[in-house]
Design a protein around this nucleic acid. Structure first.
Lengths: 114, 114
DNA sequence: TTGACATGTGACAAAATAGTCACATATAGT
DNA sequence: ACTATATGTGACTATTTTGTCACATGTCAA
C-alpha cells in the first residue's frame, strides 16, 4: 500500500518535514501559499511536494488552476508500528510523556540530567 | 533531547532501517554479527551504525574488544507524535488496523474501497 | 611478546540529491 | 482574444551521501 523507502526518503529532508508541518497546521494549501513559507524558489518546493505525494504523505486535489495539498498521516502511523512492539508500547509512551512533561516545566527546576 | 534531523536522516537509508530490524529482532549484536547480514563491507556497516548511534536510535556498550548494539525506540515514538494529532489518533489507528486486517484476509472479499 | 581478532580513522571515487532556470501548459477574468 | 496568474517539465550545477580501501588502535590468549 505504501512504499517504505519512498516514505522514509521523503521524511529525510527538513524542508519536506516543514511542508508537512505547514499542512498539519492548515490543510488544503496551494503551492503558492506553501512557497511563501520556504526560503527557496517555487521549483524547489514543487519538487519536494512531488516527493511527498509520491510517498503518499500528501494527497492533492485540483481546483481550477490551483492544486490543493492535504496531509495524510497513515504512512507515519505505519512507521511507528514497525519498531514499536505492541507489548512494549506502554513503556515507550511513558518515556516520551515524561520527556514532554519535563520540557513543559523547564523553568521550575534548574537541574536535570541528560 | 533527540535531534530531529539526525533521526530522520538516519531512517532515510534502507540499510540502516534493516540494521534496526536486525536489532529489533535480537538486541545486543556486535558489528561482526551485523556485518554478516549486509551485502557490504564492515566499513559501510560501521558507518551506518555510527549514524544510527548519533541519532540516538541505537545505543552501544563495549564488552572487551566487542561493541554491542541496542535498539532505542524512543525517537521513533516522537516522530509519530509529531504529525499524529492526539485527537485524531483513534481514527488513524482504525485505518491502519483496517489495512492490516484487509491484508490478512485478502481472499475473503473481492470488493473494498480505499 | 607474539599473533589473531574486533573495531576505528581519514581519504577517496561513484552515485544520489537539492535547488535553480529557461521554457511550457492551463485557467480565470476582462 | 488578450493578459495575468498558477502550476508543470527537462536540463543543469553544486552539494551530500554511500561504500571502499590502506592503515591504525585496542584486546584476548598462549
Amino acid at each position: 500500500m505504501f512504499n517504505d523507502d519512498l516514505v522514509f526518503k521523503a521524511l529525510g529532508d527538513p524542508s519536506r518535514r516543514f511542508l508537512l508541518d505547514l499542512l498539519f497546521q492548515r490543510d488544503g494549501q496551494t503551492l503558492g501559499e506553501l512557497e511563501a513559507e520556504l526560503a527557496m524558489t517555487r521549483f524547489g518546493v514543487m519538487k519536494h511536494l512531488r516527493v511527498l505525494e509520491d510517498a503518499g504523505l500528501v494527497v492533492t486535489r485540483r481546483s481550477g488552476r490551483e492544486k490543493l495539498h492535504f496531509l495524510n498521516p497513515v504512512p507515519i502511523r505505519l512507521i511507528h508500528d514497525r519498531w514499536i512492539d505492541k507489548y512494549r508500547e506502554r513503556q515507550v509512551s511513558a518515556l516520551t510523556d515524561l520527556k514532554t512533561s519535563l520540557e513543559s516545566k523547564k523553568c521550575q527546576s534548574s537541574k536535570k540530567k541528560a
